[in-house]
Computed example of a mutant assay.
Amino acid sequence: MPQTTAEIIADVDATVARLEAYRLELEARPVAHGYLEPGPSDDDELGGGFRLPTRPALTRHTPRPPASGTAFSIAGSELLEPKTPLSRPLFNPQPDWLAHVLTVTGSEAVLAQFRAAAAGTGRLSWGPDVTNREDLSRIFPVGDSRTAALIGQIVQTQTVLLAQETGSSSVPFDLNALCPMPLDLLSLGPASPMTQTWLWEHWGTSRPLRQVEVMDGHPKKITNHWSFSFWSADWTPWPALRAIATQWPDLTFSIRPLYDV
């Protein structure tokens, strides 16, 4: 049976803890080899006995933390005016997907509001806004009654589909639900340099999050913590997380990248 992200994280943490305990055990054992026999010095007398071998100093390694990653607190900041990026946006055709665990802490009431606001479809609906009659009128320039009826039907059908898609809330944490991309950029498509620049500046990752899974604790335990795991493309979505922390000042956010997964 394939493992979930939470199970993989738990296995990695357990393996790292066992290896660290074994390393400390080996370090505490007496050294059986590695003694150095010093050569005679000018002060030694011939036939004057022998010297005990000396034990070389052992190099001590920095202890590794018991978990495969360090949690970082996320502080909100004032929204700044957009600036010209100093480097090109990171957009790889085949990105590296990095695992993370995000923990949100706060009162149960505010946390419930945040969970409702964070749920979404988990994807970006690329293409023009076909619920806008003005945009469709530019696509279908003929202004007769049949064209107007067709535009009305398209708008009605797409509005219903979008409502169903939004209500489905297929993922518990959707960056586009909390930090939405403007509709005019969605109409340009994912290959546009403008959309790639916006994603890099406002999300810090080039694609929506994948495999967003809630890490449930005891089902009967009431808690003010909400933890979930996700995978992001190439980098941790720092800009989006800082913007979200600013929008929700009553909550505390902590992100834990898992580079060993």
Rank of each mutant, 00 (worst) to 15 (best):
E7L: 07
K220R: 13
T54R: 15
F253P: 01
G69Y: 01
V212I: 10
G217T: 10
V261I: 13
A67H: 12
P66L: 10
V214P: 00
L209H: 04
V104Q: 01
L98D: 03
K220C: 05
R242I: 15
G106Y: 03
D42E: 15
A10R: 15
Q247L: 07
T84M: 08
F253R: 02
L150K: 12
Q164W: 08
T59I: 09
D260I: 13
G39V: 13
H33R: 14
E201D: 09
V214G: 00
N92K: 15
F228V: 04
F91I: 04
P180D: 03
S77L: 09
P65G: 07
A57M: 09
D250T: 15
V212C: 04
L258N: 06
Q196S: 02
S107I: 04
E7F: 02
I8Q: 08
E27K: 05
P193I: 10
R23G: 12
L58I: 01
L150H: 10
P95G: 02
L24M: 12
P53Y: 10
G49C: 09
R256Q: 14
L183F: 01
R133K: 12
T205A: 02
A71D: 03
S77I: 10
A149T: 08
P53W: 14
L86M: 07
T54Q: 14
L162I: 09
R60N: 01
R51D: 11
S254W: 02
P208T: 06
L258P: 00
L102R: 02
A109G: 05
T195M: 07
T205E: 00
L46A: 08
D135P: 00
W238Q: 02
H100C: 12
R18E: 14
I222M: 09
L136F: 01
Y35M: 14
M215T: 11
L80Q: 13
F114H: 04
R146V: 14
F50H: 14
A240R: 00
G76T: 08
L90Q: 08
S41T: 15
R138N: 09
I9K: 03
W238S: 01
A119D: 07
D44K: 11
R210F: 04
D11I: 11
G120F: 07
G217N: 06
V31R: 12
Q196K: 10
F230M: 05
G76K: 09
W97I: 06
S168L: 15
R88A: 14
V130H: 02
G106R: 04
D13H: 13
T84W: 03
W200K: 01
D174Y: 07
V31Y: 03
G204R: 00
R88M: 09
D216E: 13
G69I: 06
T195L: 11
R55Y: 11
D96Q: 14
P89E: 03
Q158L: 05
W97E: 01
T236K: 03
Q211G: 04
T70N: 03
Q156K: 14
I8R: 13
W235S: 12
E27V: 05
R23T: 13
R133C: 03
E7M: 07
W198Q: 03
P249Y: 12
E81L: 14
S77V: 12
A21H: 10
D96C: 12
V104D: 00
F253C: 04
L162V: 08
D234G: 02
L136S: 00
